[in-house]
Amino acid sequence: MSTLNIRGLEVSVITEKGHIEILRGVDLTISSGETHAIMGPNGSGKSTLAYSIAGHPKYTITGGSVTLDGANVLEMTVDERARAGLFLAMQYPVEVPGVSVSNFLRTAATAIRGEAPKLRTWVGEVKEAMTALNMDPAFSERNVNEGFSGGEKKRHEIMQLELLKPKIAILDETDSGLDVDALRIVSEGVVRAKEANNLGVLLITHYTRILRYIKPDFVHVFANGRIVEEGGPELADKLEEKGYAEYVGA
């Protein structure tokens, strides 16, 4: 049982114009097995929350705390956070030229697990994960995210989620740019990872359609850098109907 505890998180970015405050005191607790959806309009700070938890250097934490099972996440380097059990499925996964998917996955699995996975079982593991996500085996010989379609990038993210077995996963707009079939395949992967590892999920999305596949236990409405309303799955239905208008400018 793991718990990611976010308390009063304040985050800024430094630009030429000075500090711009993006997160203005976020409180959120995610435990193993739970699915939390964060929904909100574009520009509300949802992605900033995701990247700040993962430790992206662009964001400066100006207040609050983030702990994973009591350990101070904000003091960890990016790789330490991942090894502690956090995972971020990115909206825009980065191309790494010259590094094959198979090399990348094995390097990551070795880092996360603390030892190189045994070659024979590893090959089977990767094959299984790829088959489940309906991916061509030739995929593993391609360079990481290089020339991938939007759907391939998202499948590759979820494949990593399944192979690296984190405690808490943040999915940053994993549904964006996916057609109906790809959305279903990717969502099924998330549900599999949840069931297999009692994963806690923080699902960041603009739209409700992914919630048909990945049922949230809690829905949080995000606007202007903080959570402005919380509820159960019924809150998503309300958002579907009425949109974010009442929260914007609040």
């Binding site: 790789d79 090894r83 980065v94 790494v96 990348f104 880092a111």
Partner: peptide, 23 residues
Amino acid sequence: QLFYLMSRGVPMDEARRLVVRGF
């Protein structure tokens, strides 16, 4: 690139090595 690799648990040195090798 370094952030992406490190966010998968790969330490900084190893991430740099991967990037340069790939380069």
